[in-house]
Design a protein around this nucleic acid. Structure first.
Length: 111
RNA sequence: UGAGUAUAUCGAAUGGUCGCAUACACAAUCCGUUAAUGAUUGUGUAUGAGGAAAGUCCGAGCUCCAUAGGGCAGAAUGCUGGGUAAUUCCCAGUGGAGGCGACUCUAAGGAUAGUGCAACAGAAAUAUACCGCCUAACAUUAAUUUUAGUGUUGGGUAAGGAUGGAAAGGUGAGGUAAGAGCUCACCAGCGAUAAGGUGACUAAUCGGCUAUGUAAACCCCAUUCGGAGCAAGACCAAGUAGGGAUAUUCAUGGCGACGGCCCGUUGCUUUCCCGUGGUAGGUUGCUAGAUUCUAUUGGUGACAAUAGAAGUAGAUAGAUGACCAUUCCAGACAGAACUCGGCUUAUAGAUAUACUCAUAAG
């Protein structure tokens, strides 16, 4: 992801899960933790319960696209993990985007 | 026209805006410089998931472990001939089973090497007499020279009844006290002979006269098989701390490596000297290969040979997406991770070729 640094290490994921705050809605769950930098790290998690590899790949791309289109409106300086719930396996782009924006406003990462 | 059989092909299309990965070109900046190279950013161009990418069921390439050694154990395969790098794959045939047919299916060596199993039923399950049929002796009844019936005991009989997946050849005729391959004809099975075929096998003649099934039960026979897998392996190398290389000597010892066991091979152990080994991480392996297509020739065919042409996925928490518009049959199964050849499984629908059956017409 260009200009969007992604979380890669398993340790980074564990740190956010253990120390970070979380919030969820119908389709997605968010974990976030301040990282004291001037950019965000985004991590995505879609479990095998959601569907086969085609479905999982599609959900991941939809979330990434939603994040990319709204990146300039989100506060900087956080490690963010987005988890897709099982229910999201039949969602389209608009409902994913709406759910993501709802989460961002709830946890006050929205500028 | 309808119903089918076989083989092959395709797997929504077009345009616009934004975005991602890789390669190339150009520009800028940085490091460094004899030069090349390298890193970051921007712009442009090109390319960017499948027929199964899947399951990981076979077989190979490639890499490391010893140039992959001997025996046992274990595993796999199992009609014949051929193809291939190789196979449990493919092609052509043989036998058997199914279908009116095109065609399909087939784990198809050995049951006189041995062991085991065959429930229930049935008199009896690998040897058998329950009923029945025939007959001898004795007893008894009728009748009385002799014959018929009944009972007991003994013998003959596998035609008939009944059970079962299976009752030891089948059908018909002769034959007999009643019966029986006891005899004959046809059929089936077994053995031998010479013939055809590379072979599985085929059809012919002759002979004797009968042998339960099960080997995806153990087993026997024949053939084949070393292990681990790209998280293989190679190179560079923070932090941390303690091991490595060379030469020599001794012990049939100890620890380890070579899939299990035995053998066999081999490394370390001691002293001296030196500074290196390697974790995180990075680079590489990483995509041109037994490749695809077309033509010709050889072959029934799988396939082979020759000639010409085509040819850019290569990520590493993992790129191929989002939105809009138009069209139609309204889009199924499904996402590359070292690479190939097969098999199996999932799959909306569309197309082509050859053939079969039925109906109609002729």
């Amino acid at each position: 992801m260009k200009e969007t640094f992604s979380l890669k290490k398993n340790n980074d994921f564990k740190l956010v899960y253990n120390r970070g705050k979380s919030f969820g809605n119908r389709l997605l769950v968010i974990y976030y933790l301040p990282n004291e930098k001037d950019y965000n790290n985004l991590g995505l998690s879609v479990s095998k319960k959601v569907g086969n590899s085609v479905v999982r790949n599609r959900i991941r791309r939809l979330i990434k696209e939603s994040y990319r289109l709204n990146e300039d409106k989100i506060k900087k300086g956080y490690n963010i993990i987005i988890i897709a719930k099982v229910r999201s396996n039949s969602a389209d782009f608009k409902s994913i985007e709406k759910a993501l924006l709802h989460l961002m406003k709830k946890v006050k990462l929205w500028q």
